[in-house]
């Protein structure tokens, strides 16, 4: 049963230079307990898409969707207030910078307590016990001490754990993690990821992992969306997508990452897709990857549609299927 189904989700930003399409007709569906990944370069619209799903867009943005179902409710037919209430009860989100995502003038305890008060209520004592339980769940052992401390007194990893505890306090059915480990040390990264996956199993909480790190995706997710220029260019099961990319952009992304075991040779360069990410207010005609794509030809000035190929969705006129058959 689908937990979240979104079709043709578009987000536009009103700016002085006109309207900027940050997300273009994205289609997402997540089942309960599933782990999904979204990958793409900076500015590909993955964070904006996450914010749109969590209902946290800034007032400068407008959001449209043909279908927005969350846990069996149709959000497009709700008032803004009802929608916000339903979203905050079902979806939690954690961000890239844990330390700046916590209020610097309030204690960890206060912020955690506030979340619990708004979602489950209870007496002061009950809420305190719940907070301690949550802190323990996210692997903070000295919860009693941390409860009274401020975010600046904790490390980045601990703050991210606090953020996760706060997210759990809402008992969400879906947790969106927007580059949760980018700002952290490598060892802490794996701890946080392990924690997220453990909570995913224990609470049957779906997880949407936004990242630009393929190794994280390959280890954790069932399904991956690849985003470029605000569009989803390819989606499919993680293992297949990573081992046999159909879209030239996915292939280029994979080739540009050094892997473990890669032989070092002097003068050897990693693959580098020529050009740079198009700015969203000057998108190319047709396929957004066109000017940078090594396989592009004349047909690529026509806009490619997302089509289904062998159980996978690809937005390309020339998917790379023939290459390895």
């Amino acid at each position: 049963m689908g937990l979240l189904q979104v079709e043709n989700l578009s987000v536009d930003f009103q700016t002085d230079n006109g309207i900027i399409p940050a997300v273009d007709r994205a289609k997402i569906s997540i089942n309960a307990g599933q782990v999904q990944g979204v990958i793409g370069e900076s500015g590909s619209g993955k964070s904006v898409m996450a914010l749109a799903i969590a209902g946290l867009l800034s007032p400068a943005a407008t959001m449209r969707a043909d279908l927005f179902n969350l846990d069996g409710h149709d959000l497009t037919r709700m008032s803004a207030g009802e929608r916000q209430k339903l979203i905050s009860n079902n979806i939690s989100i954690i961000f890239q910078e844990p330390t700046s995502s916590l209020n610097p003038s309030l204690t960890i305890g206060y912020q955690l307590d506030e979340t619990i008060r708004f979602h489950s209520g209870g007496t002061r004592k009950q809420r305190y016990d719940k907070a301690q339980e949550l802190l323990l769940q996210v692997g903070i052992i000295d919860g009693k001490r941390r409860y009274k401390e401020y975010p600046h007194q904790l490390s980045g990893g601990l703050n991210q754990r606090v953020m996760i505890a706060m997210a759990l306090a809402c008992e969400p059915k879906l947790l969106i993690a927007d580059e949760p480990t980018t700002a952290l040390d490598v060892t802490v990264q794996s701890q946080i990821l392990d924690l997220l996956l453990k909570l995913n199993e224990e609470h049957n909480m779906a997880l949407m992992l936004i990242t630009h790190d393929f190794s994280i995706l390959s280890e954790t997710t069932d399904k991956v969306y690849v985003m470029y220029g605000g569009q989803i260019v390819e989606s499919g099961r993680t293992y297949k997508l990573l081992s046999q990319p159909y879209h030239p952009y996915t292939k280029a992304l994979l080739n540009s990452v050094p892997h473990y075991g890669m032989h070092y040779r002097k003068g050897r360069r990693l693959f580098n897709l020529k050009g740079s990410t198009p700015s969203l207010d000057h998108l190319p005609v047709g396929c957004y990857l066109g000017p940078r794509c090594p396989y592009a030809n004349r047909k690529c000035v026509q806009t490619p549609e997302l089509r289904t190929l062998k159980g996978r969705k690809v937005r390309c006129h020339f998917p790379l299927i023939e290459d390895d058959s």
Binding site: A54, L56, Q84, K85, I87, S88, N89, S92, I93, F95, E97, S100, S101, L102, N103, P104, S105, L106, E114, T115, F118, H119, M163, M166, C170
Partner: peptide, 26 residues
């Protein structure tokens, strides 16, 4: 505009509370 206000909004706290408790102090 800061990130912790975004976090507060994601918790579903009322607008008044965000201004008086979360924003004004900072």
């Amino acid at each position: 505009k800061s990130e912790y206000i975004r976090t507060a909004r994601s918790k579903g706290i009322s607008k008044q509370r965000i201004i008086w408790v979360h924003a004004l102090r900072n």
